[in-house]
Design a binder for these strands. Structure first.
Length: 409
RNA sequence: GGAUGGGUUCCCGAGCGGCCAAAGGGAGCGGACUGUAAAUCCGUUGUCACAGACUACGAUGGUUCGAAUCCAUCCCCAUCCA
């Protein structure tokens, strides 16, 4: 079987690693237990988490054992490495609920049963009961502030200000690694490259306290060829939960990625073989076909084949001719809702969340960007034809914002 | 705790008594061009019952015919000192 390290390397996941040769050799020789931490601050994962999940999946398929560490303990105080994170206390019910949602989404990629069953643990278990004095004595002594300040993430913050809390976060995350090492013999922590210092300091802590090897490895963040973060939509993050980001929108996001980013997305987000990816995205190849493959493959991975197929059909109906309108994004209104707004197009646009406000809707109409059943709406006061509504009218905003509106009796 | 400089619309950032729903840029949205791509050009970007009204320049009070702009108190942030 191929070495997992090589798989990650050739697909472009690897960013930094504390001991590349040593780790590679270890992965070739034995089953490695490794972990990635996830903060359960929402009830769904988003695409940023997905890259990390993919690394776990590749590792597990190569015979290693993953641990999903839920950061319920650290989530209680909020991760400071994002700039404006709200430090909201979460109830344990919320956290449990979120954790369950995470696990359900992860189960499509990770195997929670069987030989290398993925383990789920929660750092609240040990962080909550931590005694401050003991912690400072046992863990705190191993951290040099001088050294921490040379870390990139802190150096940048020196200009803007740095709280003790932020530095403490590093200790907690390092302590997590130590606990998992003792509990499961976990010797590798992976994560996004923004976590590099935190991960590295955890590996150092284990080496120092336990005199055992421990490794740190970070993966590239999902970014465009211009270095911008990917996975942002008008409505915020690109979520894996279809209630937050519809399957259609999810499909469309990937259908519309920049030409230059298709190959990278395929390598990081799908399991398509590398040869196939290079063939699909070679300079002479039909890049639009590649985008369709990316969209369909990834959507199927996240939402299942059937749902992905529906999204594809809807997209074809709207853009290519053919396909079927049956699965296109649909908004159902009650007769009462419809009556209340008098079927005015401005109101309908807002009800379908195509526009943010009636003023926005009005402006868009004035700018010539609204179509009803393929006819341009020119009058701000226009209303839909009530007779057509039971079977549905198609409202369009711009080139890509399609919604089918149906009134139920 | 002290000194100084700040808090403006999605973000950065100008404005410093009326002409301010607030310059400029970024980002977003719409149009043209395209390949459901990029680049470029044009328009637009608080809300609503939309030639008008209402709500907005950290918070609360005050001065004034009139305040983002002046005064007072408070809250936050940055830099230096302790």
């Amino acid at each position: 079987m191929k070495n997992a390290y090589d798989i990650l390397a050739e697909r472009g996941f690897l960013k930094q690693c504390s001991h590349p040769e040593e780790l590679r050799e270890l992965m070739g020789r034995e089953k490695v237990t490794f972990y990635i931490g996830y903060d359960p601050t929402a009830d769904s994962l988003h695409i940023g988490h997905y890259v990390a999940l993919m690394t776990m999946a590749h590792m597990q398929r190569a015979g290693h054992r993953p641990i999903v560490l839920l950061g319920a303990g650290t989530a209680e105080i909020g991760d400071p490495s994002g700039k404006t994170d709200m430090r909201r206390m979460m109830t344990s019910e919320e956290l449990d609920h979120n954790a369950a949602c995470f696990q359900r989404q992860m189960a499509r990629l990770l195997d929670f049963g069987g030989e290398n069953a993925a383990i789920v643990d929660n750092n609240a278990t040990w962080l909550r009961s931590l005694n401050f004095l003991e912690f400072m004595r046992d863990i705190g002594v191993h951290f040099s502030v001088n050294r921490m300040l040379t870390a990139d993430c802190y150096r940048q913050r020196m200009e803007r200000g740095l709280t003790f809390f932020e530095m403490g976060y590093m200790l907690m995350q390092s302590y997590d690694f130590l606990v998992l090492h003792r509990k499961y013999n976990c010797c590798l922590q992976m994560g996004g490259d923004d976590q590099w210092s935190n991960i590295l300091s955890g590996a150092d802590l284990i080496r120092r306290k336990e005199q055992k090897p421990a490794y740190a490895l970070t993966t590239t963040l999902l970014a465009t060829s211009e270095g911008k973060k990917m996975g942002k939509t008008e409505k915020g993050a690109l979520w894996l939960d279809p209630a937050r980001t519809s399957v259609y929108d999810f499909y469309q996001y990937w259908r519309n990625v920049d030409d230059a980013d298709v190959a990278n997305c395929m390598k990081l987000l799908t399991f398509l073989p590398l040869e196939e990816i290079s063939a699909l995205t070679a300079s002479g190849a039909d890049i639009n076909a590649a985008k369709k493959t990316l969209a369909l493959t990834l959507t199927a991975q996240v939402h299942g084949e059937a749902e992905a197929e529906k999204a594809k059909l809807a997209a074809e109906a709207l853009f290519g001719g053919g396909g079927s309108i049956e699965h296109m994004p649909t908004v159902r209104l009650t007769a009462e809702e419809a009556a209340r707004c008098g079927l005015r197009v401005t109101d309908l646009l807002v009800l379908c969340s195509l526009c943010q406000s009636k003023s926005d809707a009005r402006r868009t109409i004035e700018g010539g960007g609204v179509f009803m059943d393929d006819e341009k709406v020119t009058d701000v006061y226009a209303a839909a034809d009530a007779a057509k509504l039971p079977e549905g009218i198609i409202l369009r905003k711009g080139k890509k914002g399609y919604v089918r509106v149906i009134i139920d009796d």
